[in-house]
Simulated scan of single mutants.
Amino acid sequence: MKTEVYLVRHGETLFNRLGKVQGWCDTPLTIRGIDDLKKTALALAQIHFDNMYSSDLKRAIDTVHLMKNANVVSQIGKIKKLPEFREVFFGSFEGDSIDETWRAVSKAAGIPETEDVKAIIDAVGIYKFREATKKADPRHLAENVEELDLRMQRAVKVLREETRNEGRVLVVSHGDFIKTLGIKYWDQSDGLHDIPFPENGSVTRGILDEDGNFKIVDYNCSADDL
């Protein structure tokens, strides 16, 4: 059975608002984040889901419960948490200023220091950006290309096993992780270059086939697009 997967990015959080690096560290949803998610939840309220899943981080768990509570056509039991769908890990940079972090990463990438993450990625490419992040991390704990790709493949495999008898599911994950999935699996991505960062509360839709092959067919859709 093919499974239609709705990937939802969690709502805005405190660290999003404060401009701090947030990967595996966690902060609560803001009022704005909750309000935006209510729009997404309303847009999905009449879509039947066989199940709902989320990353094991609280901002994702709170988001999936908003989706579940608003849906009027699905009978969803206990939400299963999938740690494989966590955000990208930024190691020692977790909780630091985003601007200071990107300056350190740009320096490690060998380009003029900048706070503009897009400028860094445009200059060196998404893969060298990941390697520069690990290099700039004083403890070298940040996920690099290989580590993130292995976790991403594991996430798809785990989701295939969980959803073999489910036709449509919702999974709440995180911006950078969804973007990384998009680079690899979106049918409009060449697999090499950067793509837009998904908005808080956005929906990315993919198809998971019987053999575990995953393809994203709609990326970063707002509530108005659904």
Rank of each mutant, 00 (worst) to 15 (best):
V5N: 02
V5Q: 01
V5W: 02
R9E: 04
H10G: 01
G11V: 01
G11E: 01
E12V: 09
N16D: 03
R17F: 09
G19M: 04
K20A: 13
K20R: 15
V21P: 00
V21L: 00
G23A: 06
G23I: 00
T27K: 01
L42M: 11
L42H: 11
A43I: 11
Q46G: 08
Q46F: 09
H48D: 11
D50A: 11
L57V: 00
K58L: 04
R59F: 06
R59A: 09
A60H: 05
I61L: 15
T63I: 07
L66Y: 07
L66W: 07
K68H: 13
Q75P: 00
K78P: 03
K78C: 01
P83N: 11
P83Q: 09
P83A: 12
P83V: 04
E84A: 07
E87G: 03
V88E: 02
V88R: 10
F90L: 13
S92R: 03
F93M: 11
F93T: 05
G95C: 04
S97H: 03
T101S: 14
W102F: 14
R103E: 10
E113I: 07
D116Y: 02
V117T: 08
K118R: 14
A119T: 12
I121Q: 09
I121L: 02
I121E: 04
A123L: 00
A123C: 01
I126Q: 02
I126R: 05
Y127K: 03
E131V: 10
K134Q: 14
A136K: 05
A136H: 03
D137W: 08
D137P: 08
E143F: 04
E143N: 10
E143H: 05
N144G: 13
N144A: 10
L150R: 15
Q153V: 10
Q153W: 11
R154A: 13
R154N: 15
V156M: 12
R160K: 15
E161Q: 14
E161V: 06
E162H: 11
T163S: 14
T163D: 08
T163N: 07
T163Y: 08
N165E: 06
E166M: 14
V169S: 06
V172S: 11
S173P: 11
I178D: 00
Y185N: 08
D187M: 12
G191T: 05
G191E: 08
H193I: 07
D194Y: 05
I195F: 10
I195G: 05
P196Q: 13
P196S: 14
P196V: 13
V203I: 15
E210P: 15
D211P: 03
K215G: 01
I216W: 05
D218L: 15
Y219A: 01
D225L: 11
D225W: 13
L226R: 06
